[in-house]
Structure formats: structure tokens, C-alpha cells
Write a protein that binds this DNA or RNA. Structure first.
Lengths: 233, 233
DNA sequence: CAGTGGTCTAGACCACCAG
DNA sequence: TGGTGGTCTAGACCACTGC
């Protein structure tokens, strides 16, 4: 009782998940339609729909009109990463956050950045480099290009006070974009700034952010040695 | 019309997203309750609920009973990674997939693995090492411990025919677990197997998988040089 | 064309929890 | 303790698409 009545959509979800797990319904197999399930469970079709939709979002079912609902043949693991503002991430570990601006200048970006951001070769962007520190130790090096022309209110920002990263997340919250995760060997300036030996393996996140069809910013975040990004499935 | 009537939950979602983006509703601010929004939009409360729930799932709104709905103060970026079966991932790039089993033996695992899997120091697990190749070149090195005792049907499996990874995903599809992403320097056996120079930075995914409260498997997947994991937000 | 999932409605009851 | 979101219902219409 309590939380979920006997006909709560979550209890249906659990029940159906169990049928999949127990292999009562095999991968690729068609399951009963919503109307039939509703009468089997003695509930409204909308409730069945809610449960099946949830399972489909999690990747366990494939649903198609007319074709019906099938157990996913090759389940794709979906890992949801929660990428917090760096300051928050550090503060949540009870460490002291600080931030140092390294560079802030207007330049024509190199070819690869222009390509990613679909910017022509005349337009200058703001190059911002900064270091985020946890308890005074380098945490992540931020190397970013910002399309200032596309952002109203940017002139209000003092980059010595607040990171470009944080300002953008809070002020341009509704954006799309891509992220890639990879590993690189530290070298030169990067090794220096992060205070690691040359060749140290570092975890890197790269993001290009779009506001509708306008590229807002392209950032490379290079984490200090030993950083791990975690998620639960 | 067509897809979304004037009162579709998606059109409401777009409208409300727009109010957030335009900063008509500021971060941290309380927005009208569902009943009021329903009468404003001239639709049923359930429709408003669907739209607000969707925005909350995306991290744009914080909802609490009695307290109402607020625009998220510090939006957390959510990136959903779709982690496919490795064979699929390679085949989708139109490359030829192959697989080589390196090791398969029963051992008592080292301390760190026992701790992660909550296994006592008497129990043997199956250590499986294998290499996945794309067009004959090393793609990812799989270093895995399998709790065979917890898996029915495992004896049916010939590891020379199918990777442990793939078998587990298809046969034990409904599991929970954690994943971590990091970077390491190649060395010794690993460098050898992946055919990279010592010290090369490599991207690593580590997973521990649970079926209810029983650890099923603990795997380290070390990707070849230059691998990038991508996601869109 | 007809079966299936997708969605909307109007109304209802309830769980939660801030004040 | 009252206001708010969470959910369920019964019914309806519709969009999509496999046959």
C-alpha cells in the first residue's frame, strides 16, 4: 500500500521487468498490447502505458504503433552522467574551491575549432584559459573559446570573479551540444599548469555547445591526474 | 496541428522552456502551480503535469509537493551515454569484428576486486581476459572477473565463440551497477596487447554489475589509443 | 485498412511537507 | 493542516504503419 497501490504504474513496471528478467518474455518477443495488459492487471490502460513507456525509456522495450511492443533484442546500456558545475563538484567533496584566470583574449581560432563551431575565418572569439583548484591543488584546466557576439550580457561578466563555465551554465541554461570523453598524454603547458609529469595520462572532456544553430562555446576540460568520472546505471 | 495539437504536452513544454530561456522565469523562482497553468493554457492539468515532469527530468525544474515548482538554480548537465555491445559498436562503423580469448581461469581475486564485489577471501571467480579487434586491429582489452556461481546457464557458454561481455548483456539484461571513466598510462602486458608504446594515454571504463545484491561481474575495458566516447546532450 | 501505441480530458483521491 | 504535485480512471480521438 502506502506509496504504491496494487495498481500503481511502478508496481506494474516492477512486475513486467521481472517477466523480462526471468525470461518469461524473451528478447525480441512481442508482448501483449496495452489493452490486454490493462485487463490482466485490472487497471486503466493509461497506467499500463506509463509503465511500458518507462521501461522503453530505460531501453528494455521497443515500442511501435501497430507493430506492438517487443523486449529489446540487444539492450543498450544507458549511463546517465550528471555533470555538475565544477565549483559544486568540489564543494560537495568538502574541499575548498578556487579559480585562477590564466588567459582571456580575443583571437581568430584555429581551424579545428572553427570547423567544430562552424565559424568563418574572419570572426574573432574570446579565448579563455583558467584553472580550477580544489584545496589549492589543480583540479581541472579549462581551455575554452567563447562566441561573445552571440551572448547578451557577457559584458557584465568579470572573468576574475566567476568562471566562464559557471556563468554560461547559469545564464545560457538551455542548450544542446555534444560531449566527448578521451585520454591524452600531458605535455608542455598543460603538464605545467596541472603540475604533473610529462606523459601522464589525463582524462579529457570536450564540449561544443549550441544555442539553436549558433555555436556558443567550445571547451576542453583537462582533469588532473587520477580523476574518475562516475555514474550509476 | 498535425503532430501536436495546440494543447499537446510538447507544445507546453516548448512554451515553458522558452519562458525559462528568455529569463521570464528566473533561476530559483517559483512558477505557477499546475492548476493555474492548466487554466492559462486552456488544457487539462494532466497535460501540464506531463510537460512539467518532462522538464524536471531534464533538470530544468525542481518539483516538490506543497512547495511547488521552481526553475533549477544550478542546472546539472545530464549526458546520456549509450553503451552498446562492442561487436555492435564496431559493426556499425562498417569494420570487421573479431575477438580473441587470452585467459580464462578460476582464481581467488585480488583484494580490490573482492572489495568492489563484496566477495569473501575464499571464493574463486573466473578471470577472463580477451581482446576485441576492429579490422584486425586491437580495439579494446577486456579484463574481467565473473562470479560464475551466481549465473545459471554459464556452463553453456564457450568463451572462444562469444565474449563474456556480450553473453552477459544479453542473458542478464536487467542489472544495476556503477561505471567509472578514467585515463591510465599503458604499461607492460596492456601496452603489449593493445600494441601501443609504453606510457600511451588510454581511456578506461570500469564496471561492476549487480543482480539485486549479488555481484555478477567486475570488468575493466581498456580502449586502444585515440578512442573517444561520444554523447549528445 | 485496421490494430497499436500516443495523447488529451475531466474528475477524483491521496501523499507529502512547508508553514 | 491545507496547498501542491503524483497518480489513477474511464473514455475518447488520433497518428502511425504493418499487412
Amino acid at each position: 500500500m502506502a506509496l504504491s497501490s496494487a495498481h500503481s504504474w511502478q508496481s506494474l513496471e516492477d512486475d513486467i521487468r521481472q517477466r523480462i528478467q526471468s525470461r518469461e518474455w524473451l528478447p525480441g518477443e512481442l508482448i501483449p498490447n496495452e489493452t490486454d495488459l490493462a485487463s490482466e492487471f485490472g487497471c486503466a490502460r493509461a497506467t499500463v502505458n506509463r509503465a511500458l513507456r518507462s521501461l522503453a525509456e530505460q531501453g528494455f522495450l521497443d515500442r511501435k504503433r501497430k507493430a506492438g511492443t517487443r523486449v529489446t533484442l540487444h539492450p543498450v546500456r544507458r549511463a546517465t552522467l550528471h555533470v555538475p558545475i565544477i565549483r559544486k563538484e568540489i564543494e560537495e567533496r568538502n574541499q575548498d574551491y578556487s579559480y585562477a584566470l590564466i588567459t582571456s583574449k580575443s583571437l581568430i581560432p584555429p581551424t579545428d575549432v572553427r570547423a567544430r563551431m562552424k565559424i568563418d575565418d574572419k570572426q574573432k572569439l574570446l579565448k579563455v584559459q583558467a584553472l580550477h583548484l580544489a584545496d589549492g591543488k589543480p583540479y581541472v584546466f579549462e581551455d575554452r573559446w567563447v562566441n561573445v557576439a552571440a551572448i547578451s550580457g557577457w559584458h557584465m561578466l568579470d572573468l576574475n570573479e566567476m568562471s566562464a563555465n559557471e556563468w554560461l551554465v547559469v545564464h545560457i541554461p538551455l542548450t544542446t551540444g555534444t560531449m566527448t570523453f578521451s585520454a591524452i598524454n600531458a605535455k608542455g603547458e598543460t603538464a605545467n599548469i596541472l603540475q604533473v609529469a610529462e606523459q601522464t595520462a589525463l582524462f579529457v572532456v570536450e564540449r561544443t555547445t549550441w544555442d539553436n544553430d549558433v555555436a556558443i562555446t567550445d571547451a576542453q576540460m583537462i582533469y588532473a591526474e587520477g580523476y574518475r568520472m562516475r555514474t550509476s546505471v
